[in-house]
Design a protein around this nucleic acid. Structure first.
Lengths: 108, 108
DNA sequence: ATCACATGTGCATATATTTGCACACATAAA
DNA sequence: TTTATGTGTGCAAATATATGCACATGTGAT
C-alpha cells in the first residue's frame, strides 16, 4: 500500500462498457444476437416486448460502446455482435483485475 | 445457429454480480478498498461524500454478491475485497463469453 | 443502569434510466 | 409526385435506484 505502483482500476477499466453490457434488456439483446448474424432493427424488435423505438435506442447505446457493429443497407440498419471487441474487453479487464488483486492478497 | 449446443449466456453469466460491481459508487469503493486490508464501515465512509448509511448499504450489496468479505469484531464490522472470488468471476465470465463468441464469429 | 459510539432500517425525496407514444425524417417503390 | 415502410427523436410518464435524515438496535465502557 505505501509503495503502490499500479494506477487505480478506474483508470484502466471502462466501466461504462460493462454498465451498458449488463443492463437487463441489453443483456438479453446480446444473448439473442449471439444466435444470429446481421439483423435489422425491425427484425430484432419483433422478438422483444418493448417498443421498436426502445430497442432502437438500446442498440444505439450498445453501438456507442462497440458492443455492436452497424451497417446501413438502403433504408435498413443491420446490427451484429462485435465479438472480437467484447471478448477482448472482458479478457483485458480480467487481467487488469488480476494484477490489482494479486497486490491486495499479498498484503495479508 | 440451427444446431446450437451452447446454452444462453444468461444461464452461465451472473449479470447481477457485474451490475453490482460497476455501479459508479460501488466501483469507487472497490477501487478504494483495493489499497487497504480490513476497514470498518466508519473508516470507509470517511473517504466518501455520501452519508454513512448509504455507504453501509452499498457495502452490504457488495457483500451479498461476494465482492466483499465481512468480519464482525466487537461493535465494528470490517470489510475487505474478496479478491479470489472477483478474479475468478471475471475469468470464468471471460471464458464463457469466449466460447460463445467463437461460435458466432465462425458463422460469418 | 447510563453513556458513547458503530451499525441497521424505515421512509420520503432526489436522481437516473427506461419506456412508449407521436411525429419527423429517410429511403425506395409505384 | 404520392405511398409505404424503416428508423430517429422530443417529450412526458413510468420505473428503478440512490440518497440522507431520523431513529432503532447492538455493543462495550464507565
Amino acid at each position: 500500500m505505501p509503495e503502490k505502483l499500479y494506477v487505480g482500476i478506474d483508470q484502466t477499466i471502462n466501466s461504462k462498457f460493462f454498465i451498458t453490457f449488463f443492463d437487463p434488456v441489453r443483456f438479453e439483446l446480446v444473448n439473442f444476437l449471439s444466435s444470429y448474424e446481421w439483423l435489422n432493427i425491425g427484425e430484432i424488435a419483433e422478438h422483444f416486448p418493448q417498443d421498436r423505438s426502445v430497442i432502437s435506442r438500446h442498440l444505439d447505446q450498445m453501438y456507442q460502446q462497440n458492443i455492436l457493429i452497424k451497417e446501413k443497407r438502403s433504408k435498413f440498419i443491420y446490427y451484429q455482435l462485435n465479438c472480437e471487441y467484447i471478448t477482448k474487453m472482458f479478457e483485458n479487464t480480467s487481467s487488469e483485475l488480476r494484477k490489482l488483486m494479486d497486490t491486495c492478497t499479498s498484503n495479508e
